[in-house]
C-alpha cells in the first residue's frame, strides 16, 4: 500500500491497480492529473479525497476507461489499460462496478430491471438473472421495492439500487464517485456500510469523496489529491504505512 511502488514490489503484493506516472490533460498546458503513481492491492478499500477539481473523478474515469491518460501506464490485473483498444473496453467494464453521485438509473425501468441490465449484458439466463437480482435487492434491503420505478424511491434507495447494479456482475473492482454526495448523514452511513460490506467480501473498492467525517469513521487508506497530484497517502487505521 504505497503511492510509489516499484513494479517488482507490486507483483509481490498482489496488486489489482497500478498507476505509473499518469497524467491527464484535457486542455494543453492544464492538468487534471499530474504524475500520479499509486498501487491498490486486491480487496483493498481506498478513499480518494480532495477538493473539487482535485482530479478524483478523472482518476476514476481513467480506471474504467472513460478517458485515456495523456501520459503514463495504468495496469489493471496485469493488463495495461492505457493502451486498450476501444473494442476491448466493454470486456474491462464487465469486471468493474461503478456508482455515481446522481445514481444513473433508467427512469422507465423498474428497480428489478435496472439491476438486471448488468446480468443481461453478461448474457446470463433469465432464471439466473431473476434469482441473482432478488438476492442483490435483498442484500441492499429493497426486495419489496423491486417492481417500483426509480423516481418513486428516496435518494438513499436509488443509490442502493445503483449499488446493487454495480455489484450484480460480481466485479473485482468497485468505483464510487461521490456515492453519498446527494444523501443525508444517516443514508450516507447506510450506503457506506453496504460498500464496506462489498470490500469485506473481497471486492477492491475505491471511493471518491470529500466527506471527511465519513472517511475518518471508516479509517481506511486515504489518498488525498490536490491540483491533480497525490499530496498524502494515509494508511488504514491499524496498518503500518
Amino acid at each position: 500500500m504505497s503511492a510509489a511502488p516499484s513494479p517488482g514490489e507490486s507483483a509481490r503484493r498482489d496488486a489489482l491497480v497500478q498507476m505509473y506516472h499518469v497524467s491527464k490533460s484535457y486542455l494543453p498546458g492544464t492538468f487534471a492529473l499530474r504524475d500520479v503513481t499509486l498501487e491498490v492491492a486486491k480487496g483493498e478499500f481506498v478513499f480518494l479525497t480532495g477538493p473539487s477539481g482535485a482530479g478524483k473523478t478523472t482518476l476514476l474515469k481513467l480506471l474504467f476507461a472513460a478517458e485515456k491518460p495523456s501520459e503514463g501506464q495504468i495496469i489493471l490485473r496485469g493488463r495495461n489499460i492505457a493502451r486498450l483498444r476501444d473494442s476491448a473496453i466493454p470486456g474491462l467494464r464487465r469486471r468493474i462496478g461503478v456508482v455515481f453521485q446522481d445514481f444513473k438509473l433508467l427512469a422507465n425501468r423498474t428497480v428489478e430491471e435496472n439491476v438486471a441490465v448488468t446480468l443481461e449484458v453478461l448474457g446470463r439466463p433469465p432464471r439466473e438473472v431473476r434469482r441473482r437480482v432478488f438476492a442483490l435487492l435483498k442484500q441492499v434491503g429493497l426486495q419489496h421495492r423491486r417492481h417500483h420505478f426509480p423516481l418513486s424511491l428516496s435518494g438513499g434507495e436509488q443509490q442502493r439500487v445503483a449499488l446493487a447494479r454495480a455489484l450484480a456482475g460480481e466485479p473485482e473492482l468497485l468505483l464510487a464517485d461521490e456515492p453519498t454526495g446527494n444523501l443525508d448523514p444517516e443514508l450516507t452511513l447506510e450506503i457506506m456500510d453496504l460498500i464496506a460490506h462489498a470490500s469485506v467480501r473481497g471486492t477492491t473498492v475505491i471511493v471518491a469523496t470529500h466527506d471527511l467525517p465519513t472517511v475518518d469513521r471508516y479509517g481506511k487508506r486515504t489518498l488525498h489529491l490536490e491540483a491533480g497530484r497525490i499530496k498524502e497517502d494515509r494508511a488504514a487505521v491499524g496498518v503500518r504505512p
Binding site: 466493454p90 474491462l92 464487465r94 433508467l106 441490465v117 449484458v121 453478461l122 447494479r165 456482475g169
Partner: peptide, 16 residues
C-alpha cells in the same frame, strides 16, 4: 442517451 451511457458503463459492446 442515458440508456446508452448506462449500457456502456456495465460493459455492453456498441453492437449490443
Amino acid at each position: 442517451r442515458d440508456e446508452l451511457e448506462i449500457l456502456s458503463l456495465v460493459g455492453a459492446s456498441r453492437p449490443f
